[in-house]
């Protein structure tokens, strides 16, 4: 294990360049080149943060660790997501991004460490509880409900549906109440469909959509749960360029509306061009984090992530 103090400086500290406008698309990032054989493993960051204001930092991950059998997938990862930002989480294959995601959203229970959401400890809570708190994810490979229509996929998502209680959905009179709520819901879903410009697909089985349309559907569905923070797992993977552009526009529009995003992405350029804060993971821990141009210049990132080619 090699101790690497240079990374410490880049971690967390906002530099003079500060936040970058997310709409900045002009910079060309370095070519993402993943064939790295360099193995750099760092000691855990021993930062001593004052507890940040949960309003400004809704999501905090501290010393997250996940072991499967004898294999450590995530080793002491710590980072935070500030409110109203697009935060990118990048790293080469096997860096532990997806496991981190799964630990945050309750799919896996972390071996150690904490996940704090809006000031509350949500470590190890069940996925549905995490989602209901306002932290909602999408999946790397879109997981639509194939045998349900697009509209039904959306109708499912909103929380607090009275008709989700067994007896309410069946008993006479009480059911009228459910029907009333459903009518409102239907209207909201139609609006969402229009926002994402997939209203012409409303009655299509979700299983018949193209890969990109599924990604749109997933984002729309996640949005209807009214989350505070959206975790997108490779939302642009397998999406054609024009749809990718559309998806990006939607994300920026939503961010402007006050949503917060944490995006896991393989494509480094995309993250560098669109996020104001980037977290780089390597071999299970956070290599560095900061604004894109700082990260881009970081020796370790170039060394480890880009294999020293740039």
């Amino acid at each position: 294990m090699s101790d690497d103090p240079t990374a410490e400086t880049a971690a967390g500290e906002p530099t003079s360049t500060s936040t970058v406008d997310s709409a900045e698309h002009d910079e060309n990032g370095p070519d993402a080149n993943n064939d790295t054989t360099v193995s750099v493993e760092r000691e855990p960051d021993l930062r001593d943060d004052d507890a940040p204001d949960p309003e400004e930092v809704p999501l905090r991950v501290d010393g997250l660790r996940k072991e499967f059998g004898g294999i450590t997938a995530v080793a002491d990862a710590s980072f935070q997501v500030e409110a109203g930002t697009l935060t990118g989480l990048i790293g080469p294959n096997g860096a532990g991004k997806s496991t981190t995601f799964n630990c945050i959203t309750g799919v896996h229970e972390p071996t150690a460490g904490t996940v704090t959401f809006r000031g509350e400890d949500i470590t190890g809570l069940a996925s549905h509880t995490v989602a209901n708190r306002g932290l909602v994810r999408t999946f790397q490979i879109a997981r639509e409900f194939g045998e349900m229509t697009v509209l039904e996929n959306l109708m499912l998502a909103p929380g607090g549906q009275r008709g989700e209680s067994l007896w309410r959905s069946v008993l006479p009179f009480v059911r009228d109440d459910v029907v009333g709520q459903e009518s409102e819901l239907r209207e909201r879903c139609w609006e969402t469909l229009e926002f994402f410009e997939i209203d012409h697909l409303a009655h299509e089985f979700a299983g018949n959509l193209s890969g990109g349309q599924r990604k749109l559907l997933e984002l729309a569905r996640a949005l209807l749960t009214e989350p505070d923070v959206l975790l997108l797992d490779e939302p642009f993977a397998g999406v054609n360029p024009s749809l990718e552009e559309r998806l990006l526009d939607h994300v920026h529009e939503l961010r402007a509306d006050g949503y917060t995003f944490l995006i896991v992405e393989h494509d480094m350029d995309l993250i560098m061009d669109n996020c104001e804060h980037v977290v780089v993971m390597h071999q299970g821990s956070v290599l560095t984090e900061g604004p894109p141009e700082t990260v881009r210049k970081d020796e370790d990132v170039i060394e480890a992530y880009l294999g020293g080619d740039v």
């Binding site: 799919v107 996925s127 549905h128 989602a131 909602v136 639509e144 409900f145 929380g159």
Partner: peptide, 10 residues
């Protein structure tokens, strides 16, 4: 259709 996805939606 997909229990995990339903779970992820709360």
């Amino acid at each position: 259709e997909d229990e995990d996805a339903a779970n992820a939606l709360g």
